[in-house]
Structure formats: structure tokens, C-alpha cells
């Protein structure tokens, strides 16, 4: 009985993780510019593969391995925003612009103001 419940939990997490990863990939294909694509990769992608790692930890039924999987999950969740932020910053500084549909870019506005002052 416990086996079945455990298998169900792991199965649900696996499928949910798979769906999140798939949707993140779809977002990477469908969204219009690099900044919006980052939203998909850094949120849905991380949560997806993190869920799968978590499922693997639960499946092992070993506290040491579960803790390791959990540490890995925490590590992914903490590094994904940092990576996305670094890349977004580098891309913006390098001059990659936002897609046409964007409404405002106050960062570029302030850079222009600074350039005028100098």
C-alpha cells in the first residue's frame, strides 16, 4: 500500500516536471526576444528539472540520498535567477534590444540620460 502511494507521488512529480520542462522549451521557441525567453528557461525549466530530481530523491527511500537531491534542488533554484540576471545584464549592456512589442525600457532611458550628462 505504501509502495503504491509512494509510486503515485513519484509518478505525479515526474509527469509534472516533464510538462514544465516541455512548456519551458516551447516558451524558448515561441517567445519573441531573449529577455522573455529567459523567463521561460529560468522559471519553468528550473522547476521542471528540480521536481524530477526531487522525485528521484523520494524514490530512493534513503535519507542521505534524499538530502543530496534536496541540496541539488535548492542549488538549482538559487542559481537559476543568478544566471538569468547575469545573462540579461550582459545582453542589455552589450546592446541587445527588447522585442518590438515591448512597452518601456527605463534602463535604456537612464543610460541615455547618463550619456547626455557626460
Amino acid at each position: 500500500m505504501l509502495d503504491l502511494v509512494l509510486a503515485l507521488i513519484v509518478a505525479v512529480m515526474l509527469v509534472a516536471g516533464g510538462i514544465f520542462v516541455f512548456l519551458a522549451a516551447l516558451g524558448i521557441v515561441r517567445l519573441p526576444d531573449v529577455y522573455t525567453r529567459m523567463h521561460a528557461a529560468s522559471k519553468a525549466g528550473t522547476v521542471g528539472s528540480g521536481l524530477m530530481l526531487f522525485a528521484a530523491g523520494i524514490h530512493s527511500l534513503d535519507i542521505a540520498i534524499f538530502m543530496r537531491a534536496f541540496a541539488g534542488f535548492v542549488f538549482f533554484v538559487l542559481t537559476a535567477p543568478v544566471g538569468a540576471h547575469l545573462l540579461a545584464r550582459a545582453a542589455h549592456k552589450a546592446g541587445y534590444r527588447l522585442a518590438r512589442v515591448s512597452t518601456v525600457d527605463e534602463m535604456r532611458d537612464s543610460e541615455r540620460r547618463d550619456a547626455k550628462k557626460r
Binding site: 519551458a24 522549451a25 525549466g45 528539472s49 530530481l53 544566471g83
Partner: peptide, 11 residues
Amino acid sequence: VALDMLVAIAI
């Protein structure tokens, strides 16, 4: 970004 995503998928 896509390569980063590939790593996540590989995980």
C-alpha cells in the same frame, strides 16, 4: 539561454 535550458533538460 537555450544551452542553459539544455543543461536543465539533461538534469
